[in-house]
Amino acid sequence: MRFLSISILIFALAVFLPFSGQCQTNFSPAKIELKSSVDRSNIPLNQNLTLTVQASWEGEQRRFSITPIIPPQCENLEIFESSSLNESKIEQGITRSLKTFRFVLKPLQTGTGRIGPVKVDYIDNMTQDSSSLSTQPIQVQITPANERSRSGYKPALIIAIFLVLAYVRYSSRKRAKRIDLSKITETEKIEPKPESLEEKSLRGLDELSEQVRMGRSDNFSTDIYRLLTGYLESKYQIVTSGKTTDDIIRSFSSLDLTPEKISLLREVLSTCDRAKFAGERLEKEKRDQILNMVRKFLEQNG
């Protein structure tokens, strides 16, 4: 009996082992698919474009080693941010791996923008074969800068209107409780208009002028520099905090500012820099001159 069971076991091993060996060596050939896309084909000058390059394949992430890709050559567009993401998904029992590269591009001038091909080099870790794939070049149209309220600012605008209306209703109710209705004059019925960005900055400028007049403006150049850059940040959505004056002036080239306005801003910011870093003393006349220049800019830009 024992001899019989050993014989059956040896027979079974002799029959199945060759098959199992075959299964181990015959791995499935996996293919990488490469796609590239942009989030839109028409891009206003003051907005950003996202280029997505995605490599996907069936199997685990470790199946392929993808070397870091070289950012594409661009015409009329400038890459200022990039990121990558690794993902694994199971779809109908099959593992699918994805590697996504995202590039945020900034249009440089109106016209046609071209994004060159993106080359992806990879090594199949199972076969040690290396290969590469390329995407097709992409062309986009760059249109003049949009008004702020046109696109992405709609939700913010709606929320702002809602908040203003809620505040107006609340305050009018409160007032109704306090004031005798018979005493309300026609002028009191006019609701205050929401303050514009320029009005807010001009108010800040008035406060600064008052400090200058009273001789309490020890950090005048820093304060006026911050007021102006703060306004530019809100108005044109440019980041100024990690930037030097030259960086900020360079970023004006992509905005719809006239050469006169750019020259005025350059003069104000450079004067402030000299006061901040070269110990240049700004006399009252010079301070008044700077204040007038900023006032002129804000009024014209409103």
């Binding site: 020890d218 950090n219 005048f220 150049s221 820093t222 006061a275 901040k276 070269a278 110990g279 240049e280 003393r281 700004l282």
Partner: peptide
Amino acid sequence: MQEGTAQTASDIKAIQE
């Protein structure tokens, strides 16, 4: 430091030259 004090301003002007 208060900006543009007379002492530093004249010193820096001399260095600039």
